[in-house]
């Protein structure tokens, strides 16, 4: 009887973390370059009351057995790798990736972080940096007096200086591709860190056939959260939570009945 209480509690806990994930997805539905996560669940171990295949008599075996499962747990939250919609901003330093690649950003700690959020800016020295001031890697600096910045699909950055007609190349962007992008470590601010699960990134020039994707200047990749799907998931999570709480109720009442016996 108490087992049913604990089993139902694991179901409620699993749905609780499901709702936490949905809440995070929904609150980032306007975060450029955000990749949503989806909760995955697993069943817990089973208690074998009667082992299936055990001898029922000298000639026969138990056909089905009696196994009582002990509930569910949240196993993983997977990063959804779907491409978000591209929205036109017209800003020359807004970059979107059409493909699986990631931008590389240098953190103040010296670590390289990876992001799909392509809203870049210029700092006082002309370096291309994120909104938090972390420089893009490999570093690109826009010279003072540049009248226009063009970033090609293959990542070549060229500028036109005031008084000149010919554009000059000032750098080229490179993207990183992970063998298992689902294993990246989210550290907030739209940034990921590499882990042993994600593997070492392959760094390459955008636009190739290796799946890095090409760069679109003047566009931002919107969050890949599908608000409709999240709402459906939320309803399912809520109803599943309710169902498990009904079990808690039922177990409690049955327990009460037993306690009242003999009164």
């Amino acid at each position: 009887m108490l087992r049913a209480l604990y089993t139902a509690a694991t179901g409620m806990q699993a749905q609780q973390t499901n709702l936490d994930t949905i809440a995070n997805n929904l609150s980032n539905s306007s975060t450029a370059g955000f990749q949503s996560r989806r909760m995955q669940f697993q069943d817990l171990i089973y208690q074998n009351v009667v082992m299936p295949g055990a001898a029922a008599s000298q000639q026969t075996t138990v056909a089905t057995g009696l196994q009582i499962g002990l509930g569910a747990r949240s196993a993983a939250s997977e990063i959804i790798q779907l491409q978000g919609d591209l929205s036109q901003t017209g800003n020359p330093l807004d970059l979107a990736i059409e493909g699986q690649g990631l931008f590389q950003v240098l953190l103040p700690t010296g670590q390289i972080a990876y992001t799909r959020g392509g809203a870049f800016h210029q700092d006082a020295q002309g370096n291309v940096v994120t909104a938090a001031g972390n420089p893009l890697q490999p570093a690109v600096a826009i010279p003072a007096g540049a009248t226009s910045v063009t970033i090609a699909a293959d990542g070549t950055v060229s500028v036109t200086l005031a008084g000149q007609t010919a554009a000059q190349q000032v750098g080229s962007l490179q993207l990183a591709l992970f063998p298992n992008p689902g294993g990246l470590n989210s550290i907030g601010q739209n940034l990921y860190l590499a882990t042993t699960a994600s593997g070492d990134p392959a760094i390459g020039t955008p636009g190739g056939a290796d799946g890095l994707g090409q760069i679109e200047q003047g566009y931002l990749e919107q969050s890949n959260v599908s608000v409709v799907d999240e709402f459906i998931n939320m309803i399912v999570a809520q109803r599943s939570y309710e169902a498990s709480s009904r079990v808690v109720d039922a177990a409690d009442q049955m327990f009460q009945l037993v306690n009242q016996m003999g009164k």
Binding site: T7, A8, L70, A72, A243, R246
Partner: peptide
């Protein structure tokens, strides 16, 4: 009841 509890706890398990 324990069997039902286990089923309902796994209503979202793929």
């Amino acid at each position: 009841l324990e069997v039902v509890a286990h089923n309902l706890a796994n209503v979202s398990t793929v």
